[in-house]
Simulated assay, not measured.
Amino acid sequence: MTFRVRVLVLLSALLVLAGVATASVLHASARAERRDRPQAGGPRIVSGGVALKSPGRMVFRNMAWGPHRDELVSVPATDPAGPRTAAPVKCLRFYAASGTGVCLQAVHGPVSDTYRAVILDVSLHERARYDVPGIPSRARVAPSGHYAAWTAFVGGDSYAGTNFSTRTAIVNVRTGELTSTLESYRVVKDGRTYRAADTNFWGVTFAADDRTFYATLATHGTTYLVRGDLRTRTVTTLRTDVECPSLSPDGTRIAFKKRVPGLPKDAPWRLYVLNLRTGRETPVAEPRSVDDQAVWRDAGTLVYALPGDYGADLYEVPADGTGTPHRLTTAAVSPAYLG
C-alpha cells in the first residue's frame, strides 16, 4: 500500500468516525429536547411543594415528557387527571404511608447505572439511603410508616419469564436496621422448615401491626403467597399461584396477580382478590394482563398501572368483581394515597 493510499484510507476512516460522532450528538440532542419539552396535550405540571401528609392527595411518578419527567407529583385524589404539582425528586418506583416515603432511584454512571433506595420524610427530604443490587421493581411502606420494603431484579428482566432472580429488602425506618434479603428468613412450608437454593421473594405488603407482612415466594417453578413475621424472621406458605400481593386497608383481603392458563406467555396474569378468612378468590373486571402490585384506593377500589404511550397509565376497578375498569390518568405509575 502506497503512502497516498494509506492517507486516503485514514481520511476515509476519520470521516466515518466524524459522521458517527455527529449522528450520536444529534440523537442525544433530540432525546434531550424531547425530555425537556413539555408533552403536547399532556397534563399541566408546575413546580411546588409536595408533602407526604396531605390528606386527600395522591402522589405518583410522573411519566409525561418535559422538565418534570420521572419526578414525584401530587394531585387531588378526587381529580387524578388534573394539574400536577411536581417536586424535584426523581424515582423509578415509589410508595408512601404515614409521612414516610421510599423512592427507588437510578444513579447514572459513565459505564452503567447503579440503584439505591432513599427513605424520605414528610417533606421529601432524605432520611437514609441503601444500595439496591439491581433494577427496582416494587416498593412498599407499612401503614405506620415504620418499615419500608423494596424488590429489585438481579437477573433477567421480567416476572413473565423464568430466567430471573430477585432481592427483596426490608428496613426498620426508625432504627435503620436492614434485612438486605428475605432469603435470610426461615421458610416454613407444609409445617416444616424448607430450604432451597432457588428461593426468590418479591412484592412485600405490610399489615398494620408492624409485625406481619405478606409477599410472594417462588421456588421450583411455583409461586406461593407467604405470611411473614418481622419478629421471628420467618415466612409461612399459605397458597400457590399468588404474585405481588397487596393487603386491603382493613387487613381482610389481598389483591394479587394470578397466572391464568391459556394466556400468552408475555401477558399471563389477571387481577384477583383473595378473602383471607374464607379463602375465596374473586377475579376483578379487568380483562387485560396486569403486571403491577395493585394499590387499594379505599376499601372497595383497586388502582394499578397498564402500559401507555409514555410508559404507563393508571386505572381503577372495583375490588368485588363488579363494574368496569376506568382510566384515572395518563403518564403515571407508582401511586400512593395519602391519609
Rank of each mutant, 00 (worst) to 15 (best):
V290K: 05
V260T: 15
A305G: 09
W296T: 12
Y310M: 11
G279T: 14
D266P: 00
L263P: 04
P261S: 04
A299K: 07
P287N: 05
P287D: 08
P268E: 00
A299M: 03
W269T: 01
L306I: 02
V295P: 00
G311I: 02
R277W: 07
P287M: 04
Y272C: 04
D298N: 14
L274F: 13
V295C: 00
V295G: 00
R270V: 09
G321K: 11
K265Y: 12
Q293W: 01
Y310A: 15
Y315D: 06
N275E: 12
P264M: 11
L274I: 15
G311A: 04
L263S: 08
A285W: 05
E316W: 07
G279A: 13
R259L: 07
G308E: 06
T278P: 09
L263H: 05
D291W: 08
R297D: 02
E281G: 06
P261Y: 12
V284N: 05
W269A: 02
A299V: 10
T282V: 15
A299G: 14
G262W: 03
R288E: 13
L263Y: 07
A312P: 00
P264W: 09
E286K: 09
E286T: 12
L271C: 10
W269V: 01
L306N: 05
W296N: 08
Q293E: 13
G279I: 15
V260H: 07
A312D: 08
R277S: 15
D292N: 01
G300E: 13
V317S: 12
D309M: 02
G262R: 07
E281F: 05
P287V: 02
Y315A: 04
D292V: 01
E281T: 14
V303C: 02
G321F: 08
E316D: 14
Y304W: 10
T282S: 09
P318Y: 12
A312G: 03
G262L: 03
L314G: 01
E286M: 14
P287C: 08
V295N: 00
G300S: 14
D313Y: 05
W269Q: 02
T278R: 07
P318D: 08
Y310Q: 14
P268H: 03
D313E: 10
R297S: 07
P318A: 08
R280C: 06
P287F: 08
P287I: 02
K265D: 14
A299Q: 12
P287K: 04
G308R: 08
A299R: 15
Y304I: 03
A319Q: 10
G262F: 09
E286W: 05
P268A: 04
P264H: 06
G300R: 15
V317F: 07
D313R: 03
P283R: 13
V295F: 00
R297C: 00
N275F: 00
G262T: 03
Y304N: 05
A294T: 08
A285Y: 13
W296E: 07
G308T: 11
T278D: 10
A305P: 00
L314V: 02
N275G: 06
V295R: 10
Y310P: 01
D320K: 12
P283V: 11
G300T: 13
R280D: 13
G311C: 00
V284D: 06
G279K: 12
P318V: 10
V284H: 05
E281R: 15
T282F: 10
Y310S: 14
P287A: 03
D291S: 14
A294W: 11
V317A: 10
V273N: 03
E281N: 12
V260Q: 09
P287T: 06
E281Y: 04
A319R: 06
G300P: 06
P318R: 08
